[in-house]
Design a protein around this nucleic acid. Sequence first.
DNA 1: CTAGTTACTAGACACCGCCTAGTCTCTCGT
DNA 2: ACGAGAGACTAGGCGGTGTCTAGTAACTAG
Lengths: 199, 199
Amino acid sequence: MTPPPFHHHGNLRAVLLDAAERTLREGTVDDLSLRDLARQAGVSHGAPRSHFIDRQALLDALAERGFARLADAVAEAGAAPAGTLVARVHAVATAYVDFAVSDAALMELMFSTKGAGAPPAVQAAAARLFSAFGAMFDADFRAGHFRGTDPERTKLFFVAALQGIAALITSGRVSPGQGGELVEEAVALVLVDGAPGGS
Amino acid sequence: MTPPPFHHHGNLRAVLLDAAERTLREGTVDDLSLRDLARQAGVSHGAPRSHFIDRQALLDALAERGFARLADAVAEAGAAPAGTLVARVHAVATAYVDFAVSDAALMELMFSTKGAGAPPAVQAAAARLFSAFGAMFDADFRAGHFRGTDPERTKLFFVAALQGIAALITSGRVSPGQGGELVEEAVALVLVDGAPGGS
DNA sequence: CTAGTTACTAGACACCGCCTAGTCTCTCGT
DNA sequence: ACGAGAGACTAGGCGGTGTCTAGTAACTAG
């Protein structure tokens, strides 16, 4: 049953990434240690080097995964066919900051790739997230349901606001409850009919 | 003239903090090394321990300083007696994201203090920033010049938006130019008369 | 069957944060 | 005036980390 525990257990890369995500969920990015991950996986401290040339390479792979997961979560939240526009926007916004809050360390890692130094893979994953975000409400933008003049700018502003709200929550500056209020404020300010859908 | 270079040169703490800020301005937070700072200051590797019990203590002191500087910058930008409301809000917003962009690593450090684990000094400095931010436009809030229903919530949302814009810029997701546009969008959305003051 | 590539082990190096002991200097109470 | 104590700094050591290198075992292709 157990594959020969010697060499080539084959999925070390995935095991390391999973362990890293687990560690990341209950700590910060600098709690991540290649040697510790290797220990958790039961391999020697040099083993990860076969899959990640660098510590940074491990971090990049985690960021790429994170962007993909976030894009999925956002897309799923926005794919509700029924429901008002404001409800859908609210769902997307909530999905975004929920992800950012529950995976705060991952989020920090995703957005800490300095300048243009990020490898193409994570840049592509990030671009996929943003384009999915943008395309989701294009029709509603054209229908004039959003405030602002330039759709592109308004969309970008919206994700900026969500990002900032998440940052304020994870840094303990506001409570999760206040965070929810801020999300409502965000959708209220961005839509021309900003009445909260629930009330 | 030169103070005896042996013991007690007295301002080691300030020298270390200055060197740390310099290092931080052209690198990330984990480029900071107590030993390296000691080397820069020309003291032994154990010397910093007289002033900072921890590496974290050094980081906390940097964060405290950062909050104070940010609060000053914001207060100065908002203290222009003449000028329209939108111009003043725009100035404050620009000051905020300019600081966040030019001192990106410091900003990350300031907002990475996990939960309530921050020492009282930095919490106080952060509170001073936020209260200054809030008190600045209280009269205008009461006069109904801001959108939103709850002033407190709108103010918090505003700083969240600025924080997010800064995050998008420093992570290379948007250019500084786009950042400026996003700032204008932010003040336009937050004020009832959102016409840009410059045009 | 052999050659090469890949996944892993094991050891070393330099760096780091942290701790401890020792030394020097300044200050303060008597 | 002087001795005690506190503070600032030096020097050394410990465990941990990332990275590099050499060696080994397994799979794969010719």
